[in-house]
Design a protein around this nucleic acid. Structure first.
Lengths: 165, 165, 165, 165
DNA sequence: TTTT
DNA sequence: TTTT
């Protein structure tokens, strides 16, 4: 039973390709930004748009789905909670804050091919970074057994059945 | 019609008496903090609580209701949206950020008398600050006509009809 | 200020082309169904999908947007509230209930061309029904002045600027 | 990952003491109604209140908390989803529908002693029905070991430590 | 059937 | 800085 509630619902577009890190324990963390746009009237009575950028962080299975299917421009529905981390800046000694949305669940609203100028869902390219992972890799969410991700890359035609959710 | 969604739902307790400011135009702004508590398992598998402090800002009529009925300890349901303001620190020149919840609607969950060690809903005390307002003052939400706030303070018994919502 | 909260958030697909009715006062009402799908484990531990059909009702400007841009298959984000109407069945005398979602806001998640086997967003066809209106007509939400909807139909290439939201 | 969203947020008052049933497997089901009130303007421009009654159903641990702590008049925050069951009426043969909110989580907003004219949280009374359970009974959520519910009833003073959440 |  |  909840004693308090801290709930966020966002629907917007991803600003850049997500950054994926692996933890020592082999789990994944995805970080990315999401833009929402508010239309409101200014003092002069004119409608103006204000874009809000949210810092999102996702873990584990959700991070893997993001790694594999979310890229710059993707339209996403997100449920999560607000969390603010604070630390003391090493140089200035100042208290610093960063507010992030801890993602609980997402719904992908961009079809394949939509949502970004980059490659498709399985680009096969690799950054080569040590703890930087790339979409298109095998996901623990993919439970099709041997063949898994390779099939995803090599199949001549990708059907809906190839998408593991 | 919305193109994007930026929605926050919070239920928690107010950390301090809200700060109320008046704008040049005679409108009100209420600023206050709200605590939510998350229970999660740490690495050792023990349940630990983490308290999250949210910075809330409310305007106009909602600010007046907050001025009049919300105080330290009040339990509150809040709907709003996330907004991050940024500015350049004058001394260090650094970019600074502050994330706030812009309040759209609230529901007061503390009965009168609950939610704080301080006085009741109409303390009658005054800070004397130039643009700092105190609960118990006349509210534009109070539409009882002449007598308004004074009656609220002087009446021997406050009934439900005295609460303007 | 709210005393209670009755809030619904849905994201799903429209089951049929919406029905549009006009009120005596010249306002519009849109009725349509929206499907959401729940994945849960049955008694045997197998994942099963259950589709839930929601009856949605929208009014005024939102109804017009739905008339003009929503059709069978459209993916939609909806905010609203739950409302149950009841009446006595004329033949059996029984009390009957119908629960509907009163739509407050929507976000269209299907691009143009997506979301339905039917015509595009501006079919130009007409049912001819007395109080049955068709997408593609001039909308009070369309504020492009003279030319409005006709341009929408006749233009050789529809750009984003043609979509009035 | 979600493909669709079906989410309900309610904050209101419980209409009657919840009904608790036990399943053959020893699990619990709680059924109760919750009222929300909408204030809207009627045709004449007057504010009118409309009370909406929601049928809620909770399972397992949540059902036990409801059994033990929720009663007529309790103020409750609820998260859940909409579900409509249908069946064929045995006598008339008609299709019948009942829309219910399947409860995922609750937050109790009535303090002990608040929210109902009836007894306290541990009335100790029993209906005697075979599959009808009463608040105050032993809960699997209560992990105080031997003594459990009896202690709850017989203790001269109930402290916060007696509440298992 | 609740609540204020 | 809240609350239980």
């Amino acid at each position: 039973m909840a004693k308090t509630v801290n709930k966020v619902i966002l629907l917007g577009n991803v600003g850049k390709d997500p950054e994926i890190r692996a933890t020592a324990g082999g789990s994944f963390v995805a970080s990315f930004s999401l833009a929402t746009t508010d239309r409101s009237k200014d003092q002069s009575g004119n409608w103006t748009d204000r874009t809000e950028w949210h810092n999102l962080v996702a873990f584990q299975r959700t991070a893997e789905i993001i790694r594999d299917y979310v890229k710059k421009g993707s339209k996403l529905y997100v449920e999560g909670k607000i969390q603010t981390r604070s630390w003391d800046d090493k140089t200035t000694g100042e208290k610093k804050y960063r507010t992030e949305i801890i993602v609980n669940d997402i719904a992908l609203l961009s079809g394949r091919g939509e949502g970004g100028e980059g490659g498709g869902y399985s680009s096969g390219s690799s950054y080569g970074g040590s703890s930087n992972y790339n979409r298109g890799g095998a996901s623990s969410y993919d439970q099709r057994g041997p063949g898994g991700a390779d099939d995803l890359v090599s199949s001549t035609e990708i059907t809906d059945d190839d998408i593991p959710f």
